[in-house]
Amino acid sequence: CHSECLGNCSQPDDPTKCVACRNFYLDGRCVETCPPPYYHFQDWRCVNFSFCQDLHHKCKNSRRQGCHQYVIHNNKCIPECPSGYTMNSSNLLCTPCLGPCPKVCHLLEGEKTIDSVTSAQELRGCTVINGSLIINIRGGNNLAAELEANLGLIEEISGYLKIRRSYALVSLSFFRKLRLIRGETLEIGNYSFYALDNQNLRQLWDWSKHNLTITQGKLFFHYNPKLCLSEIHKMEEVSGTKGRQERNDIALKTNGDQASCENELLKFSYIRTSFDKILLRWEPYWPPDFRDLLGFMLFYKEAPYQNVTEFDGQDACGSNSWTVVDIDPPLRSNDPKSQNHPGWLMRGLKPWTQYAIFVKTLVTFSDERRTYGAKSDIIYVQTDATNPSVPLDPISVSNSSSQIILKWKPPSDPNGNITHYLVFWERQAEDSELFELDYCLKGLKLPSRTWSPPFESEDSQKHNQSEYEDSAGECCSCPKTDSQILKELEESSFRKTFEDYLHNVVFVPRKT
C-alpha cells in the first residue's frame, strides 16, 4: 500500500485506493498535508475557505447554543480562536489581540433580562453583547459592586439597553466600559436606550469621564423622579442622539420631579488639616426662599486615587461607600458681607490618608415646582503625618564578641513616609551569675543571650482551647457569634421535631 494509506488498500502504491488515510483526505486521495488554498479540518480532512465560511455563517444565523462559528488559524479551520487571539470578521482569520481579548457573548432569543446578581454573573467577562440587555433589578445585597464585577467589562451592545423598574439602582456607572450601543435591534418605538419607572436612579454616568455613542435609535425617559433633566440632556449631547427624540420621548413632568437638581456650584473657602482632623468651610448658599434650606450634607471617604465619582458603590438597598454628615444651616444675616460661612470639623480620621470630599445642599421643593440647590466639586484632601507606631517583631542576635545583629519589621501604621529608623542602645553591667558559677561542674549549661522565638506554653494553649472559665478566673470563653447562636437554635429545633416524629412513629394507638 501507499505510504499515506492506513489499515489496508485495494490497489498497491495508489493513494486513492486506501481504506483510511494516515494524515489527511483531499478529493478522494490521501495526502501528507493540505496544500494551499485548503485548510486542515478536524485533523483528517482538507477543506477550502468557502466550506469553513459556510459553517461560520450557519452557526451565526441559527443562534443555536453550542454550535461553533468556525475560524481560520495556522492553516486550520477550527471552532474558535485560541487564547490571546480574536477573529477578523472580513476573512475569519485569528489575529493577536492588542491588550485583553474581546469576548463576544451571543444571547438566546436576542435579549437577556438581568433581574438578579445570579443572572448578571452569566455575563461575567463579556466585552461584546450580541443582542439586547434588559435591566430589571428590584433589590439585593452589595448590588453596585456585584454588577460592576460582572457587567463592568461590557464595551458594546449590538441591540438596545433597557432599564425598567430597577428600584435598587442609583447610577449606571457599573457599566464602566460601555462605549457603544449599535441599535441594530430596537425596542418598540425605535428606541435604543429605554429608561422607565426607576424610582431611585439619580445618575446615568459621570459624563466628564465617560463617552457613549448610540449609532441608531432614540432615547426614552419616563417616570424617573430623581433623575434630573440636565442629566438626560447631557446624554443626548454626548451620545449623538440630540435631535432624534420626539416631543413625548422625554417626559418633562415625570423626570426629576422629586430630585434636588443642583444648578449652582458650592466653593470651599477654608481648608485646614491635622493628622486626624480636617476643618472645612464653604461659601454660604440661600435659595430664593431661605426657609427652603434644610441644611447641608457632607460626604467623605478614603480615596487612594483621584478618580472618585459621587455615586460609586451606591445602591438604593443601603450600600453606600460614603460617610454622610448632616449639618444645620448657619444663622442668616441681613448683611451679605457678614454672612457666616458654614463648615464642619471632621474628626477621627487616619493620618497621612487622602480623602475625597464634597458637600451639597438639602432643600425642600418650592411652590413653583422649581428645584434649587448647590453642590461642590469633589475635592481631595490629605491629612498630615504623625509619629508612626512601633516597629514590629524586633530580633537581636550576637554573632561574635563585638557585634549584635538587630532586625525588625516595619510598623503596622507608618502614618507617613518613613525615611529612617533611630536605634538606641545602652551598655549593661555583666551578670554576677557568670562569676559565681563553678565551671568545672559536669552538665553545666552556660547562660545564653542568643534570641529564641517566643512560644506559647501548654497552660496558655489549654486556656485558649477551654470553653469555660478556669477556677483562677484568668480566662473566659469568647462570646458566641450570631451565626453560632442561630445554628444552635436550628439544631435544637431539629432535635425537638425529630423526637416528636419518633414518638408518633414508635407509639401507635392500640386498636379498641
Score class of each variant (00 low, 15 high):
Lys234Met: 15
Thr383Tyr: 02
Asn224Ser: 00
Leu151Val: 11
Glu187His: 10
Lys350Arg: 14
Gln314His: 14
Lys226Leu: 03
Leu219Phe: 09
Ile327His: 07
Glu283Pro: 02
Val324Arg: 12
Tyr305Gly: 11
Tyr372Asn: 05
Ser173Leu: 08
Arg347Gln: 04
Phe290Asp: 15
Tyr191Ala: 11
Pro330Val: 05
Glu302Lys: 12
Leu196Ser: 08
Leu279Val: 10
Tyr300Gly: 03
Thr118Ala: 09
Glu264Ala: 03
Ala385Thr: 11
Leu392Ile: 10
Val359Trp: 00
Gly110Pro: 07
Gly159Ser: 04
His106Thr: 11
Met297Phe: 00
Trp286Thr: 03
Phe358Ala: 11
Phe311Trp: 15
Asn136Met: 00
Asp257Tyr: 07
Thr323Val: 11
Ser208Gly: 14
Leu345Gly: 02
Leu151Thr: 02
Leu345Ser: 07
Leu406Thr: 02
Arg124Pro: 05
Ala251Trp: 15
Thr254His: 15
Gln339Pro: 11
Gln339Leu: 10
Ala303Val: 15
Asp315Trp: 15
His106Ser: 08
Lys103Tyr: 05
Ile395His: 13
Lys409Asp: 04
Asn200Thr: 12
Ser166Glu: 05
Glu310Trp: 14
Ala195Gly: 14
Arg370Thr: 08
Ala120Thr: 05
Glu148Trp: 13
Leu294Glu: 03
Glu262Pro: 05
Cys261Asn: 03
Asn200Tyr: 05
Ser401Ala: 15
Leu186Met: 13
Arg281Thr: 10
Phe268Leu: 07
Gly183Leu: 02
Ala144Glu: 08
Tyr300His: 14
Arg182Ile: 06
Gly159Ala: 12
Ser132Met: 01
Asn334Ile: 13
Ile154Gln: 01
Ile395Pro: 00
Gly318Arg: 12
Phe296Thr: 00
Glu246Asp: 13
Gly313Asn: 14
Thr113Val: 11
Ala168Arg: 15
Gly295Ala: 08
Ala385Val: 06
Gly243Ser: 03
Gly125His: 05
Asp257Trp: 03
Pro288Asn: 12
Phe174Leu: 06
Ser166Gln: 10
Lys267Val: 12
Pro288Ile: 11
Leu133Gly: 01
Glu184Gln: 15
Ala251His: 13
Ser260Leu: 07
Leu293Ser: 02
Glu236Trp: 15
Ile134Pro: 00
Asp312Pro: 13
Ser402Tyr: 14
Lys177Arg: 10
Val324Ile: 08
Trp205Arg: 02
Lys277Cys: 14
Arg244Leu: 13
Val238Cys: 05
Phe299Leu: 12
Gly131Thr: 01
Arg179Lys: 12
Thr353Arg: 07
Ala356Leu: 02
Phe174Ile: 13
Arg138Leu: 14
Arg244Gln: 13
Ile135Arg: 01
Ile181Met: 04
Phe175Leu: 11
Ile378Val: 05
Val363His: 05
Thr371Val: 07
Lys267Ile: 15
Ser274Lys: 15
Cys105Gln: 07
Lys177Glu: 15
Gly183Lys: 03
Leu212Arg: 01
Asp335Cys: 14
Trp352Pro: 00
Tyr194Lys: 15
Met235Leu: 15
Asp276Ala: 13
Ser166His: 05
His341Leu: 11
Tyr194Arg: 14
Ala259Phe: 04
Ser132Gly: 07
Asp197Ser: 05
Ile188Val: 10
Gly139Val: 15
Ile379Val: 11
Arg332Tyr: 09
Leu180Glu: 14
Val170Leu: 12
Met235Tyr: 15
Ser173Thr: 09
Arg176Asn: 06
Leu265Gln: 13
Gly131His: 01
Leu143Asn: 05
Thr185His: 14
Lys301Met: 14
His233Val: 07
Ile327Tyr: 06
Thr113Tyr: 05
Ala149Gln: 13
Ile114Arg: 01
Leu161Glu: 01
Pro391Ile: 04
Gly159Lys: 03
Asn307Trp: 10
Ile395Arg: 13
Ser119Pro: 08
Ser401Thr: 10
Thr371Ser: 06
Lys226Phe: 02
Ser321Ala: 08
Thr323Lys: 13
Ser132Thr: 11
Phe311Ile: 06
Asp328Leu: 06
Tyr160Asn: 09
Thr241Val: 08
Lys253Thr: 14
Asp115Gly: 05
Ser398Asn: 02
Gly125Ser: 05
Lys103Gln: 04
His222Asn: 07
Ser192Asn: 02
Ser402Met: 15
Ala149Phe: 12
Arg370His: 01
Asn248Gln: 07
Leu186Phe: 10
Leu362Ser: 05
Tyr380Phe: 11
Tyr194Glu: 15
Arg332Lys: 11
Ser192Pro: 13
Ile214Cys: 15
Ser389Pro: 00
Thr213Phe: 06
Lys350His: 05
Asn387Asp: 05
Phe290Asn: 01
Glu109His: 15
Arg164Cys: 09
Glu264Thr: 03
Leu252Lys: 07
Pro342Tyr: 03
His233Asp: 13
Arg332Ser: 07
Pro336Ser: 09
Gly243Thr: 10
Ala385Leu: 12
Gly125Lys: 07
Lys277Gln: 15
Pro394Gly: 04
Gly139Ser: 10
Glu231Lys: 10
Leu161Ile: 12
Arg370Asp: 05
Glu283Lys: 11
Trp205Gln: 04
Tyr372Pro: 06
Phe220Tyr: 03
Leu147Ser: 02
Thr361Phe: 02
Ile395Ser: 06
Gly348His: 10
Arg179Leu: 08
Pro410Ser: 15
Ile188Gln: 10
Thr213Asp: 12
Pro342Thr: 09
Trp344Glu: 11
Leu349Gly: 03
Asn200Met: 13
Tyr167Phe: 13
Gly243Pro: 00
Ile114Phe: 02
Ile157Trp: 00
